[in-house]
């Protein structure tokens, strides 16, 4: 607050904000280190200046060089959505389908989660909400076969965008990660260059494990961007700062609710601002 001096208490307070926003110890220490260097012996070190410097540092770590998604780069443009269990993949696809189709794009969805109970039914309901076709098979069938059919259907129906859902899987399950590779190969065979975007969905309530998730999904299926969900809660999702630094992965979208309109493009400045908002 105003009138406060930069002292050990204030630095501790900042450290607390960073750690409780899930930035992690490594990033927090780096940021604290750069602050201490910047303000070492400076007279004009007000709390406000400190905060601004910190926001700049964090913003710089989030504003990556990555080009935005160019949906016209291919036709159909194929997006594959991956992530661990329960993070919000299917919901994000439902919202994205709505967002794209309301821009006049023809969208087809592939229900590549054939494992979880009623996963395809869930996606079908989302498809109905925005009037988008969903290609599905029976529960227990081969996800690669769904990918194949979905790719064929997207081409035949002259879709602009195909979005493929996949079953949630922990990044530590080797055979399930291999399965994703196979799905990728099928897409690429049917539509050269596909998937053009592989989105990793991360839950903002996740702590340090999200960094490991991003690392392993990047290694196996070359993810190209992140969708950060559940930012409507009290979790800040600070781990994406570490992910931006270490893996150079841009956050593409944020999820801010369960409704069809609750998807936003990621805005680093707003995100950083929210990190420091105390409730």
């Amino acid at each position: 607050g105003a009138g406060k001096k930069v002292d050990a208490d204030l630095l501790e307070e900042i450290e607390e904000i960073l750690i409780t926003a899930d930035l992690g110890m490594k990033t927090t220490r780096e940021l604290m280190g750069s602050l201490e260097k910047r303000f070492d012996g400076t007279d004009g070190a007000t709390p406000e200046a400190l905060r601004r410097a910190l926001q700049e540092e964090i913003g710089a770590r989030l504003r990556l060089e990555a080009a935005p998604i160019d949906y016209s780069a291919a036709s159909p443009f194929v997006i594959m959505v991956v992530g661990v269990n329960g993070v919000g993949k299917t919901t994000t696809i439902g919202k994205l389908a709505h967002y794209l189709s309301s821009q006049g794009k023809k969208v087809v969805l592939g229900a590549g989660d054939t494992f979880r109970a009623a996963a395809a039914e869930q996606l079908v309901i989302w498809g109905e909400r925005s009037g988008v076709d969903v290609i599905r098979h029976d529960e227990g069938s081969d996800p690669a076969a769904v990918a194949f059919d979905a790719a064929r259907a997207a081409v035949a129906r002259k879709a602009d965008v195909l979005i493929l859902d996949t079953a949630g899987r922990l990044h530590t399950k080797v055979n399930l990660m291999e399965e994703l590779k196979k799905v990728r190969r099928v897409l690429d065979r049917e539509i050269p260059g596909a998937p053009h975007e592989t989105l990793l969905v991360l839950d903002a309530t996740t702590g340090q494990n999200a960094l490991v998730q991003a690392r392993l999904f990047k290694e196996t299926v070359a993810i190209s961007g992140i969708a950060l969900t559940k930012l409507d809660g009290t979790a800040r999702g600070g781990i994406v700062v570490a992910i931006g630094c270490e893996l150079n992965l841009p956050v593409r979208f944020v999820g801010i609710g369960e409704g069809i309109d609750d998807l936003r493009p990621f805005e680093p400045d707003l995100f950083v601002e929210a990190l420091f908002q105390r409730d």
Binding site: N85, T205, T206
Partner: peptide, 28 residues
Amino acid sequence: DAMTGQDAVTVAKAFDELLNITGVVLTK
């Protein structure tokens, strides 16, 4: 969720204060 970060306490406290939970299941 076992992967939950720092927010776990805020959430758990709110559920417990309202409902007086009897226990926790840690998943994944």
